[in-house]
Write a protein that binds this DNA or RNA. Structure first.
Lengths: 120, 120
DNA sequence: GTAATCTACAACCAAATGGTTGTACGAAAT
DNA sequence: ATTTCGTACAACCATTTGGTTGTAGATTAC
C-alpha cells in the first residue's frame, strides 16, 4: 500500500478521484504520458485497494476508497502512538530520576521540530 | 518519503528506532541480510528525514524523527479532508437545489441526500 | 603497536518499476 | 457494417531498487 502511494502520479490520481469518479481516459488526458502508463498506475492503485473501478458502458470509472486511505493514516498514527508512549515512559523515568541528578542532556521532544520540508 | 516507507524492513527500522536509538550494527544484527544492506536502508530513511543519525565514537546512533512521521500522516489526512469536503459540497448542492427549485423556506436534510454517487 | 569493530562506499547483479509501442476486443457512434 | 473510442494486455526498454561482496577509514580493545 505504501508502495502504491510512493509515486507522485498515483497520489495525484488518488486525489483527483476523491473529488469525483473519472474514467481512465479522462485521467490519462491530463498527464504527459501514454494512456497505457496511466492505466498501469490505476491498476497498482486498484491492487492496493486504494481505488475501486466500476464499469459503465465501455468506460471504467475510478473512484478513491477512503477506507483504505484512513487505514494508511492509522498505520502511521500507530507510529506516533509508539512515540508518545515512549515520551510517557521517559517522563516517568525523569520524574523518578529528578529526585537525584538533574541532567539537561536528553531527548528534547518539544524542540525537535526540524524543518519538515522536502522529501515527499 | 512514501517511497522510503514503502519497504517493510525500513518501516521496521523506523518502528524500532522510535523506541530508542540504536546503532546501525545493532539494527543489522536482527535482519537476515548483510550489514551493508541495512546500512543502505538507513541511508534511505535518513535522506527522507524519517530518521536522524548521531555520531558517538565509532558508532552511528539512529533515532526516528517523529515530525516527519506526523508529516506523512498529515498528508494522508488531507486526502481524508478532501473526501469530507466533497461530501459537504454535495450536501450544499442538494440544499441549494432544493431551495432553488422551490420557493420553500429552509433546506431539506432529512432523507433527500441519499445518492452521493452520480449514476451508481 | 596490532587486532577487532563500526561504518562508509564502490562495484556488481537480479528483480521490480515506470515508461513505451503494438495488438486485440467490446461498446458506441457513424 | 465500419469506424472510432475506451480499455486491457503483451513485449520491450531504461532506470531504480534491494541485495551482495569487497575495500578502506576511524575508533576502540588488547
Amino acid at each position: 500500500m505504501f508502495q502504491a502511494l510512493a509515486a507522485r502520479t498515483r497520489r495525484d490520481i488518488l486525489r483527483r478521484t476523491i473529488d469525483h469518479e473519472q474514467s481512465v481516459s479522462e485521467l490519462a488526458r491530463d498527464y504527459d504520458m501514454s494512456f497505457a502508463a496511466v492505466q498501469k498506475h490505476v491498476a497498482v492503485l486498484e491492487a492496493a485497494e486504494l481505488i475501486v473501478k466500476r464499469a459503465e458502458g465501455r468506460e471504467r470509472l475510478v473512484r478513491a476508497n477512503p477506507d483504505m486511505i484512513a487505514h494508511a493514516r492509522a498505520l502511521l498514527a500507530r507510529y506516533e502512538e509508539l512515540w508518545r508512549s515512549r515520551i510517557a515512559r521517559l517522563d516517568d523515568l525523569l520524574a523518578e530520576d529528578a529526585a537525584g541528578a538533574r541532567d539537561d542532556r536528553g531527548p528534547d521532544p518539544s524542540g525537535s521540530a526540524d524543518r519538515p520540508n522536502q522529501g515527499d
